[in-house]
Amino acid sequence: MALPMSADAPTDICAIVRALNAGDMRTCARLITRIERSEPNLVPLLQALYRAGGHIRIVGVTGSPGVGKSTLVSKLVAVWRKRGLRVAVLAVDPSSPYSGGAVLGDRLRMKEHSCDEGVFIRSMASRGQLGGLAKAAGDALTVLDAMHWDVIVIETVGVGQSETDIMRHASVVVLLQTPMGGDDVQAAKAGITEIGDIFVVNKSEHPEADHTVRQLEEMITLALCLHPEKTWRPPVVKTRATHGEGVADLAGHIDGCFAHLAAQPETARLQLRDRARHRVGELLHYMLEQRLRSGVGLLPENLIDSVVARASDPYALAAGLLARMD
């Protein structure tokens, strides 16, 4: 049996914190694995890391499957690397609802940063989480935070209309779309279209690209008219990520968004409060779920049968199980 940690990876809390502060990728990588396994005994370490953290710029990148998120992230990282910035990327892809397995294909698009010591890339499977990220993402960000990267990018799974968890983890959310995404009513809908701090129309060589940009600009103008308290007007950027076109422009807008947050301390404070509140809620949810599972165990099949036969109902069964929690 292999050792739980490789010979080079430290095992006590102080040593782990020191190793992370020194930028040790192996310690970071193993810790993220252990977070994904929900090892409960990591909590003291994560508490220490959380309390010391919160200083790193976190950029979220989201959008539908195949719009070019990973390719764009790779090109963004290249722009930042040229400026000498050190970057970590956490890239989430979906798990199979059938087997729990996954094919994580984000790293494939980021080859140009292999073997660059200033870049850390970690793929993560969503493992059933529905908000566009993985359950382990929050704690993984806490670990990355401790490594003093200049920027952390978190890339969501390919999302639909309602996967908005990214806004609770990233200070700046970049929402990617491609041309031909639908009409102005699609742009006016609630959900994902509301959370972009920066809108990107990728694959901009498509003849419909300018039309899509106009639709987004109109939606943004209208949203600002309805919410005059909002001080940030999300820019719309055209990119062609495979060729790197428009990416420097996007990086400039990301800087602009962070500068805006810095100049608006009240907005930034509310955002941080919102994120903290959400994180507490998330953990509460996991802890309750764990207690429920450990207290109740698996649902007895005869009770399920009674619901199927309509002799009982889902409300009664759920309330009964909750009452059995200590």
Partner: peptide, 11 residues
């Protein structure tokens, strides 16, 4: 994937 394994595909 179908066996429950997480695959990092590098191409």
């Amino acid at each position: 994937r179908d066996a429950g394994i997480e695959v990092v595909y590098l191409g």
